[in-house]
C-alpha cells in the first residue's frame, strides 16, 4: 500500500530509508531518541519534506502533497488539542474542514466518542480533562476523518504506567474496529512488542531490522537490535563451520548456517535461556558475583570464562556460589559482525 524511499541531507537524520507499510497493519517505529523515527513519521504526515526520495501512497507520489490534503491523520505527542474549543468542536474540526453536513458530523462525533469510551463528553472543556482523556480525544479527533493511515507519535509517553498499559489494549482494539493502518512511534520496546504486527527497529537514521515482534526478539539481525530489545548477553565468537560456534575458547553447537568458515560473529544469548547447574568437569564454570530480585525472577551475574553473564532464573543462588552454565543450540543466536567502521558505529549504543 505504501512505499517509502527517503534520503536526508545535511544532518542525515534518515539515510536512504526504504520501508513498505501494508494496509491494515500495526507498524511500530522503535528506536532510541534521535534515531530518526519521529522525522520519518513527520515525513509521512507531510510536516517535513525529504531532501530526496519519495513517499508513495497507493501507487501515487504524495511527497509534495501538504498535510491537509493527505488521507493521513496524526495523534501528536502532546495531544495538541485546541484549547479554545470544547470536546465536540475539537472532534468536528476535521470533518467541518472537509465540508461535511452537520448531521454527518454529529453522528461521527458520537461514534468516535463511543469508540474511545468517552460518551457524553461532547460539551466538556478539553483543558479540564485528564491526560488519558485528552489522549482519547486526540485519537477521536483524528479517526473521525476516516484516514487511511493514523500516525501516532509516542502518544503514551506522557501517561503513567498503569494508564499506558490499558491504553495499549485500547489502541489495539480501536485499530481492529476501525481497520485503519497504524504507524506508531515509540522508544519503549515493551509497547512495540505487545502492540505491533510489524516492528521497525531504527538507529542513527538507519533501519536496523523489520520483522514481527517475535522475529526481532528471537532473531535479531545485529548486536544493536539484540541489545535494544530485551536483555542480552552479546559475546564475540567465531563461526567454526555451519552449526558450530566457538565462544570463550569453547565450542557450542548452534542452528545457524551460511557464515564463512572461521569468521568472527556476534553471539547473542538471552538471559532467560541460560540454565545454571552444579559445577561440572567439562562445562563452562563460573562464580555468582551478584544477585538481585525482580519480583518474578532473579537477575544473576555469573563471572565465567572472563565474561560477566546476565542470567534470569526463578531459583535463588548465593553470591560466591560456583555454578556451570548450559546453553541449548536453538538459544544461541549468531549475528554477522558489522562490515565497516560506519556500520560498527551504528550498532554501538
Amino acid at each position: 500500500m505504501e512505499n517509502v524511499v527517503k534520503t536526508f541531507g545535511s544532518l542525515t537524520v534518515l539515510d536512504e530509508i526504504e520501508l513498505t507499510i501494508h494496509e491494515n497493519e500495526f507498524v511500530t517505529l522503535l528506536g532510541p531518541s534521535g534515531c530518526g523515527k519521529t522525522t520519518l513519521l513527520r515525513i509521512l504526515g507531510g510536516f517535513e519534506m525529504p531532501d530526496s526520495g519519495k513517499v508513495i501512497f497507493s501507487g501515487k507520489d504524495i511527497t509534495n502533497v501538504p498535510p491537509n490534503k493527505r488521507p493521513i491523520n496524526t495523534v501528536f505527542q502532546k495531544y495538541s488539542l485546541f484549547s479554545h474549543m470544547n470536546v465536540e468542536e475539537n472532534i468536528a474540526f476535521g470533518p467541518k474542514n472537509s465540508g461535511k453536513s452537520a448531521d454527518y458530523i454529529r453522528g461521527k462525533i458520537s461514534y468516535a466518542l463511543k469508540l474511545v469510551n468517552l460518551e457524553g463528553y461532547e460539551k466538556h472543556d478539553v483543558t479540564k480533562l485528564s491526560g488519558g482523556q485528552q489522549q482519547r480525544i486526540a485519537i477521536a479527533r483524528a479517526i473521525v476523518n476516516e484516514p487511511k493511515v493514523l500516525l501516532l507519535d509516542e502518544p503514551l509517553s506522557a501517561l503513567d504506567l498503569k494508564l499506558r498499559r490499558s491504553m495499549r489494549q485500547e489502541l489495539v482494539r480501536i485499530k481492529r474496529e476501525t481497520g485503519i493502518t497504524f504507524v506508531f512511534v515509540t522508544h519503549d520496546q515493551e509497547e512495540a512488542l505487545s502492540m505491533s504486527d510489524t516492528v521497525v527497529v531504527m538507529n542513527q537514521g538507519y533501519i536496523q531490522q523489520v520483522g514481527t515482534p517475535e522475529n526481532v526478539y528471537n532473531e535479531p539481525e545485529n548486536a544493536f537490535v539484540a541489545d535494544f530489545i530485551g536483555d542480552s548477553n552479546i559475546i564475540d565468537g567465531v563461526m567454526v563451520h555451519d552449526k558450530l560456534v566457538r565462544i570463550l575458547g569453547r565450542e557450542y553447537p548452534c542452528v545457524d548456517v551460511g557464515f564463512p568458515l572461521e569468521s568472527p560473529v556476534d553471539v547473542q544469548i538471552r538471559p532467560e535461556d541460560i540454565t545454571l547447574d552444579a559445577p561440572q568437569e567439562d562445562a563452562l564454570n563460573g562464580v555468582v558475583t551478584k544477585i538481585s530480585f525482580w519480583g518474578m525472577s532473579y537477575d544473576i551475574i555469573v563471572s565465567a570464562g572472563g565474561f560477566d553473564w546476565l542470567i534470569q532464573s526463578i531459583h535463588r543462588r548465593e553470591v560466591g556460589e560456583e555454578v556451570s552454565l548450559h546453553l541449548d543450540p536453538e538459544n544461541i543466536q549468531i549475528m554477522a559482525k558489522p562490515q565497516s567502521e560506519d556500520e560498527a558505529k551504528l550498532v554501538e549504543q
Binding site: 504526515g45 510536516f47 498535510p67 493521513i72 496524526t74 501528536f76 495538541s80 474540526f93 474542514n97
Partner: peptide, 18 residues
C-alpha cells in the same frame, strides 16, 4: 502557542487561511 497546534490544524484538513 505550541507549534504542534498549528500542525494539528493542518493535519485535520485546514488550509493556511482556515
Amino acid at each position: 502557542i505550541d507549534k504542534s497546534i498549528f500542525e494539528a490544524a493542518r493535519d485535520l484538513g485546514a488550509n493556511s487561511w482556515q
